[in-house]
Design a protein around this nucleic acid. Structure first.
Lengths: 230, 230
DNA sequence: GAGTGGTCTAGACCACTGG
DNA sequence: CAGTGGTCTAGACCACTCC
């Protein structure tokens, strides 16, 4: 209720675009019009527009107007949207099979990544990721239990982990760091992913952070050698 | 000579930091001081500061001041700096063995990536990348010949391709897109990289763009399964 | 308290597109 | 020409930190 005006304005515009009120290619109201409409000064509007320009949400033509850009470049979106949205964006029909979902004690490396105590209770989730009926990846997630009590009550085959985070627990993923390596598949992975040995896999380890830079999830995924966009 | 004030101010500050006039951790002059010093208004200074904050060049502590940030996060720098700088940053001693360096005609896929005609003359460069005497990657580069006539005269074992680009041809790499997959090594790759078969490799394909979004290089690298940071 | 970063206003001017 | 995006000013206020 007390966030700066420009953030509210920005969220208003983003929401309007997300709702489809402004379609890609549409012209937005002029900057002067936005000033009157929201009762703010030109500079404040400019600040918002500037950020939207940087994020490639809109583009501008001098002397003409502001236009809504095409849906974001894959480069920007990449991994913060989660598997389901990522696959959907690429035109695949994503689905998920839950392999394991339980509470465990944090091993050392996991605890360090999540910045919590060793042996602290965490939620462990292992899922098979499927696109168009073809297994794509095996993803293991580790989430501090204190951040999301009752998480295990959800059906992870149907709900996206990131959706649950934001709707149920107010945790908005805002940034992440990852490392990627290449690995040979072991027998279990080969069976799950429907591969013949020997096979090469991408191994991705990713830590996701919320607004306040608090780590909310560590994920370790093995992904089929198929192409992966960054 | 007629670029906006805030760009000049920004370049001034960046230059001062690059010269070491302000060291990482140093406090910058206050925003009000910068106003007087450069004869501009607070908002103009703020705009510059805002961009530097976004680029993580400086960070701010409310009520205290502005401070120069540590050298950029590996996340930001990653691949735009080229192999040599990247390895040096990680503490390895990089070296290079040139496998091939010649002029060829652009095959279809290469031409499309570089936005040139099929069969147009291009420079083809294949290098073995070594860190601490251990082979790390085999990198193939494709560069349009028209962008850099005489490129083959350089000794690529000693000079960084990106250095040559910026110093000799005024081409500053500003952005890139890449795709990454995992692959099994073939016999030649295994021998070059000193691996026993079967072995998993990262395969990275990257297009690098200059200031004007012009493609300047297509690179196809196979990298040892070892860790790779993004 | 004085000084800091951060937000915001109400105007102004410029260069550009269109009718 | 009037309308547009883009830049810029000279103030103002707030919350914060340090003394």
């Amino acid at each position: 209720m007390c966030s700066p005006v420009y953030i509210q304005l920005k969220e208003n515009l983003l929401a309007a675009i997300a709702r489809g009120e402004y379609q890609p290619g549409d012209r937005l109201p002029s900057q002067r019009a936005l000033c009157k409409q929201y009762g703010v000064s030109h500079m404040t509007v400019r600040r918002v527009i500037n950020e939207l320009l940087l994020q490639r949400v809109v583009y501008s033509v001098t002397g003409k107007g502001l236009y809504v850009a095409e849906p974001k470049h894959p480069a920007e979106v990449n991994s913060l949207t989660g598997f389901v949205n990522h696959m959907a964006r690429l035109g695949y029909i994503p689905s998920t099979r839950v392999l394991e979902a339980k509470q465990i004690h944090a091993p050392f490396l996991v605890a360090r990544a999540l910045e919590i105590e060793v042996d602290a209770p965490i939620i462990y989730l292992r899922r098979l990721r499927i696109a168009n009926d073809q297994p794509m990846a095996v993803a293991a997630c580790y989430v501090p239990r204190q951040l999301c009590p009752g998480l295990l009550a959800h059906d992870f085959a149907k709900e996206s982990l990131f959706d649950i985070f934001s709707t149920q627990y107010g945790l908005q993923p805002t940034s992440s760091i990852s490392t990627i390596e290449a690995r040979l598949a072991d027998e279990e992975e080969a069976e799950l992913l429907d591969l013949r040995l020997p096979a090469a896999l991408l191994y991705k380890e990713q830590i996701t952070f919320a607004q306040n830079r608090q780590p909310i999830e560590l994920s370790r995924s093995v992904i089929r050698g198929d192409q992966y966009h960054l």
